[in-house]
Design a protein around this nucleic acid. Sequence first.
DNA 1: AATTGGTTTGTTGCATGCATGAAATGCTAG
DNA 2: CTAGCATTTCATGCATGCAACAAACCAATT
Lengths: 206, 206
Amino acid sequence: MIVTGAVMPGALLAETALAQEFEVSRTPIREALKQLEREGLVEVRARVGTFVRKPTQREIHEMFELKESFEGLAAGLLAKRGPVPELEHLKENVARSQQAVEHGDAQEYSQLVHDFHSTLVAGADNRKLSEHYDLLMNQLAYQRIVSQTLSQPGRLQNSVKEHQAIIDAISSKDPLAAELVMRRHVAASSQLAAIAALKEDEGQSN
Amino acid sequence: MIVTGAVMPGALLAETALAQEFEVSRTPIREALKQLEREGLVEVRARVGTFVRKPTQREIHEMFELKESFEGLAAGLLAKRGPVPELEHLKENVARSQQAVEHGDAQEYSQLVHDFHSTLVAGADNRKLSEHYDLLMNQLAYQRIVSQTLSQPGRLQNSVKEHQAIIDAISSKDPLAAELVMRRHVAASSQLAAIAALKEDEGQSN
DNA sequence: AATTGGTTTGTTGCATGCATGAAATGCTAG
DNA sequence: CTAGCATTTCATGCATGCAACAAACCAATT
């Protein structure tokens, strides 16, 4: 809903309006908005209104630091796991990503990248990690969609190679290497995404 | 409230009862309980009741893995920071912890350990990290568990030494070492805490 | 024209009533 | 005495009304 960017940041989310739209009373709407407030997606100003929150540039930076830590942990845990059912899925993902890059299919590639990272975190077999990760990614989602498509074509090929290296480290049961490679990969991607988000931000505010 | 263990796991938290206790209507109580449900502290079974949730042994293990990752990240970020105002506070904390260990003051030491870790995470200067960390620690009810590991004789002195090593790594601006030492420290403490939690669990269920 | 004051409007915060459904309870039959 | 069924109890889920308050608006005055 909000994470897809369907509503613009700063927009008012009036309880009564949403209640009419979804054809329920204010109460369940209100509870949902409170949840979103706790997730940091909206800001409820008492007796004024509920507004879609726009993450600051600093918060985006902080969230990318967390993302690196989360996914690094996930990669390490995957390498520590005995059998990893998701490994085949990840290998196939890399193969298809390679094809997508060669064909210049940005849409397909964006989808595959998202699938790769969420499969990897899910495969870590740590539900609490997944919960925290999902929470984090919800807050980042809007920026993610925009910046993914704007990544430079040269980066995509490198990204695929890094994905392959991550899989290799996991396959060889090397948790330290898996975490290290993963973190470097996320850091590199994050840097580009942060720059894209910054430019987007400047374009909006002017 | 719940995190302090004032109410036992499995206990029913009736909205009407809480409403009378706090002298408000059900509505704000209800919102608070929904928040706690999202935080994983209580379980709301539709039209049955709201109950204090008891983390499974597996969840405790997962949360300790997350704790290690969070605090490792925090230590690394601290070492990366230029000036660290909290460093003096941390040094003083270690000095007082050393005294507490020598005097066998378990109560004081427990408080100092908690202060050390929260100061360290807060000092990382990453609010999103702090939010996720606080969320995690609420679920762990850490204070309750850690107090039971205090009876371990040799562990306390080792813990203080590890705290000192963490400070040294931060002082020398070595992020990798800071993270590594921190993670080893958390892993060691977590192992003892997990054992304590397991024993408490067995004691309860019998 | 600008400012200040009061009024109006719109929003959330809270209280409360009713509907829904699950679980406990008791009653009856075997 | 036990098993099964109806009933009663009790909890949340949702709808709605009212109060409180912030902000926008408008008019009067300087």
